[in-house]
Design a protein around this nucleic acid. Structure first.
Length: 426
RNA sequence: GGCGCGUUCGUCUAGUGGCCUAGGACACUGGAUUCUCAUUCCAGUAAUCAGGGGUUCGAAUCCCCUACGCGCUACCA
């Protein structure tokens, strides 16, 4: 039975690097019908951040990385660690000094072990090792003791954690041995680094999961992208669902080189997921995302127009707000359109609009204005840009006539009148 | 400094001795489609596989050395 766990310390919000660690542990457990648990490593009271535990749990839930059972909270198990630390004193492999309990490292010999990642055989010379603290003088365990005790009790196997722990392996192995417990397998995941190749941190603008969510990223895209940092699905397929990942994931294929987090590719992938969604589903997601949107019930008809134009849910707003709110005109925008007398042209546009049979049909509408452009001797593209600017105040919008349809005949006419006023006054 | 790990296009990677004059994806550039922007489709630029020595008929792939990077070296995790 495979039992894995994700064991973050609540020193801040859920880190994007933690997502991959949690994901791999989750995938392995689900693939083998095992269990995936959450353990909160809050034994350092100084670094504890209020709300961090909630953020971690919420982030995991949002991502769909559901853990089994209740989280194990280390700070609630103080006595347990104390008991085990004392047991090691009794066994003669630990001693008390300055109120702390220290582990006695053997001074001779070697520790060898094979990591599941890349099947690396790693050996450490014990002469290099020093005694280390198991239980701090405040009564809390250090990571080293807590890890050994908890993962033994939780029957974790394999232990999946970051590469930064590799150097501590001799401590852990010897502690397991001192207790007479079975040593679990370990998978030390390569670090996720920033563009400067150092461990990803706030310094790199690394954001928490919550911030990615606010930015309009989808959990499935984040999971998919993070999975690819160190693992390639069979066949080199890059867009893979969680279910597919569960089926095909294997620690054997995870490699041992640090990966640079590249948000550009994440954005591309997020766009892929958005385009893949049905209109109904995207509408629902947008409505959930845009909680404060002024016209939430009017989002659905706009969706097909923007689906191929947004990479993040948040991109919806700047692209479409002219549909929901009056545009503000800008002289510069009109200056970029190569039509001599814009006011006169708009006058003709208005005239033509009035003559069209309502309700306007996008197709006929377009035909009419192609004709008008021809009659006025201007390029079709410029004609459309003029109407676009008049109706939206922008040079970039979703398809013009479909947008106007959504806007409605009345509003479209009114906006063109206002654009004319603006052109006259400025 | 010591110890450990790592090193294939800008980035993520394929690659486990011959299929590699190194493949894919993102990004970038050009083109096609097009009312703008996107999408889509085509094409292209980009790695002397960190460097040097071996082993071998043959090495990105195995071994050694060097360089560089990162991690650890806390009564932090």
């Amino acid at each position: 039975m495979i039992k894995t766990r994700f064991a973050p310390s609540p020193t801040g919000t859920m880190h994007i690097g933690g997502v991959r660690t949690a994901l791999y542990a989750f995938l392995l457990a689900r693939k083998n019908q095992g269990t995936f648990n959450l353990r909160i490593e809050d034994t350092d009271r100084n670094r504890y951040v209020e709300g961090a535990v909630e953020d971690i749990i919420q982030s995991l839930r949002w991502l769909g990385l559901n853990f089994d059972g209740e989280p194990v909270i280390q700070s609630e198990r103080k006595e347990l660690y104390q008991k085990y630390a004392k047991e090691l004193i009794e066994k003669g492999v630990a001693y008390e000094q300055d109120g702390a309990i220290w582990f006695t490292m053997p001074k001779k010999g070697q520790v060898r072990f094979t990591d599941l990642i890349g099947k690396r055989e790693i050996s450490f010379d014990l002469a290099e090792q020093k005694d280390f603290v198991l239980l701090k003088s405040d009564g809390f365990p250090t990571y080293h003791l807590a890890h050994v005790v908890d993962d033994h009790l939780m029957e974790t196997n394999p232990v999946i954690r970051g590469d930064e722990w590799l150097s501590s392996i001799p401590k852990h192995i010897l502690t397991f041995q001192a207790f007479g417990w079975e040593i679990p397998n370990y998978a030390h995941l390569p670090l996720i680094v920033g563009t400067d190749r150092s461990k990803l941190s706030k310094r790199h603008g690394a954001k928490g999961v919550g911030e990615f969510r606010q930015d309009g990223f989808l959990p499935e895209a984040i999971l998919n992208y993070m999975a690819l940092l160190g693992w390639t699905p069979p066949g080199g397929k890059e867009i893979v669902s969680l279910d597919e990942m569960i089926r095909t994931f294997d620690l054997k294929n995870v490699h041992s080189t640090p990966a640079v987090f590249d948000i550009t590719k994440l954005e591309w992938m997020n766009g892929e997921y958005i385009r893949k969604m049905s209109d109904e589903r995207l509408s629902k997601r947008l409505r959930e995302f845009l909680v404060d949107h002024p016209a939430k019930d009017k989002i659905a008809p706009v969706v097909p127009l923007v689906k191929e134009r947004i990479k993040k849910l948040s991109d919806f707003v700047p692209l479409t707000d002219f549909l929901f709110e009056k545009p503000e005109y800008d002289r510069e925008v009109f200056n970029k359109i190569k039509i001599e007398d814009k006011k006169e042209a708009l006058d003709k546009v208005l005239y033509k609009m009035e003559s069209l049979q309502k309700p306007w049909k996008a197709e006929e509408f377009e035909k009419a204005f192609r004709k008008l452009a021809e009659d006025l001797g201007v390029k079709v593209g410029d004609m459309f840009q003029l109407i676009r600017a008049a109706v939206s105040g922008q040079l970039v919008t979703p398809p013009l006539f479909e947008s106007i349809k959504i806007l409605g005949e009345e509003k479209a006419v009114k906006r063109i009148e206002e654009a004319m006023k603006f052109l006259q006054s400025s």
